[in-house]
Design a protein around this nucleic acid. Structure first.
Length: 460
RNA sequence: GGAGGGAUGGCAGAGCGGACGAUUGCGACGGUCUUGAAAACCGUUGGACCUUCACAGGUCCCGGGGGUUCGAAUCCCCCUCCCUCCGCCA
């Protein structure tokens, strides 16, 4: 009944203090739960009364039917009046029950997931636990201490000015080998996981319900782009459509775990961060990402969480980047997550750690919202599945870290071994490959680009 | 965008005011038979909520919402979604 709530209402009834304490760990005010508990009691009472009244109606209706059947319709008149009154009362009670259920749902929808027991305590980013740092001991030369936006301009790989003209601030455009590098990273991110993850190319525009299922609505509506005319939302991550892949379904336990991966564009309004990280690729409204995703039983969840994390780490490690893994504290956890590991890449030019992946275990939070269950092999009632997701590769920030790390003293960018098959075998991006330096204010001199030599177009 | 058709259990597909949570077929599961299997035969086979230690019982669900009625899968109204044809289109 409260299927779009965050937690099992039974858990809240059975252990209200435990649930409230867990919620408080993430820094969320647990007091709305008191209201839920109170409303829940009233809701059940109303619902019980409605059921009893309804049972009375059913009983009388059978009698009336029997009387009609035996030709004694005159005797049914009193029963009909009585039944009509019971039906009226039943409707009143169930109306009240529905109203209470809706109020409960609205409160529950705004409440975040409970942090896992072993999720570290803490109130914000400073309390995240560094699990390990890999490659951090290497030293960087001056040639690597150039931020990617300067490299992008120098080699003609990025064209921020024109991107702004098209779409506004915080949109970016890649050019030539820079664009090709984006595509290479996407293919790299997907291809190395083909062995176990089915590739999906989902829609990037989704319905409201699809956004509610993951927890992105109703609470975080300001963070997402909304197309009002058609009431569609631009996805902030492939996690959104992938969660709805099996929404409202009951899966056989034998089919779990189910593993998917998807490359999509991701759209974020970044409402609260205007003016922050405005340079380069650190924070943009639209970016490409490869997502790894899984549905599984509660028992399989820790193993799958590790698998996704290991795959993401492997992808970053094989690119030869310096990175660290963070165990997010309860106070820094995303709303839908019970436990999250972040992977951050070190960008020597910008001299910053960039979050490139977030690998989260949502327990049954999203499955409850999306009504995704599985039928246990040993028979019994269907149970909510667990869902897990991890950015396999957030392209812009990996691109940034890569370009800065692989900048050689001569200014060219070396292509890491593992990316070369996806870059047509080239080993570097040099000054001659991209758009000519200084071309940002006019049409580049390079030939054949952006124009057709056969058809003259005056508008398009 | 225009015109028409549809929405019933895992799937297919009946039912069109009362004993229908729903005939039947397929699938799945269990059993009989068999060295094993197939075939045949027999049986089982939805979900949600509430009450209950349990046994068990009650209510709701035939796309969603509302109405008519003592009683609705069946009648009426609204909405959503899907399909077909035409138009447009990468």
């Amino acid at each position: 009944m409260y299927r779009q709530g965050m937690l099992d209402i039974r858990q809240l009834r059975a252990d209200p203090d435990g649930v409230k304490a867990a919620l408080a760990r993430r820094g969320e005010d647990p007091s709305p739960l008191d209201e839920v508990i109170e409303l829940d009691e009233r809701q059940r009472a109303a619902s019980r009364r409605a059921d009893e009244l309804r049972a009375g109606v059913n009983r009388i209706s059978k009698e009336v039917g029997a009387l009609y059947g035996s030709g004694r319709s005159d005797a049914a008149a009193g029963l009909r009046t009585r039944s009509r009154e019971l039906a009226r009362q039943a409707q009143e009670q169930s109306g009240e029950a529905d109203e209470l259920a809706e109020r409960i749902r609205r409160v529950l929808l705004e409440i975040g997931n409970l942090p896992a027991a072993d999720c570290p305590d803490g109130t914000g980013p400073d309390d995240n636990v560094v699990v390990r740092v890999v490659g951090g001991s290497q030293s960087y030369g001056d040639h690597q201490r150039v931020p990617h936006w300067e490299i992008g301009a120098e080699l003609g790989l990025l064209d921020p000015a024109r991107a702004v003209r098209m779409s506004g601030a915080m949109f970016v455009m890649y050019r030539g080998p820079g664009a090709r590098l984006v595509r290479a990273l996407i293919n790299y991110g997907l291809d190395r996981n083909r062995d176990a993850y089915e590739e999906i190319r989902p829609p990037t525009l989704v319905r409201t319900e699809t956004m509610v299922s993951t927890g992105h609505l109703p609470k975080f509506a300001d963070d997402a782009y909304h197309l009002e005319r058609d009431d569609l939302w631009a996805i902030p991550t492939a996690e959104v459509p992938l969660t709805s892949l099996i929404r409202d379904e009951i899966i056989d336990e034998a089919d779990l775990p189910m593993r998917f991966m998807a490359h999509t564009s991701c759209f974020r309004r970044e409402a609260g961060s205007a003016g922050r990280d405005t340079r380069g690729l650190l924070r943009v409204h639209e970016f490409d990402k490869v997502e790894l995703y899984g549905f599984c039983t509660p028992e399989q969840a820790p193993g799958l969480h590790n698998d996704i994390l290991a795959r993401v780490e492997g992808a970053i490690a094989d690119l030869g980047l310096t990175y660290r893994i963070l165990d997010l504290c309860a106070g820094d956890l995303g709303s839908a997550s019970a436990r999250t590991f972040d992977i951050e890449v070190y960008a020597p030019g910008a001299d910053r750690w960039l979050e490139v992946s977030s690998v989260s275990w949502c327990r049954d939070y999203q499955a409850r919202r999306a009504n995704i269950r599985y039928r246990p092999a040993a028979s019994g009632q269907p149970r909510a599945v667990h869902s897990l997701n991890g950015s396999g590769l957030a392209v812009p920030r990996v691109w940034a870290g890569l370009v800065e790390t692989y900048r050689r003293p001569d200014g060219a960018i070396a292509i890491p071994e593992v990316l070369r098959p996806h870059m047509g075998g080239i080993t570097e991006i040099g000054a001659a490959d991209g758009w000519p330096a200084g071309a940002a204010d006019g049409w580049p001199a390079a030939t054949g680009l952006g124009r057709s030599d056969r058809t003259e177009r005056h508008d398009s």
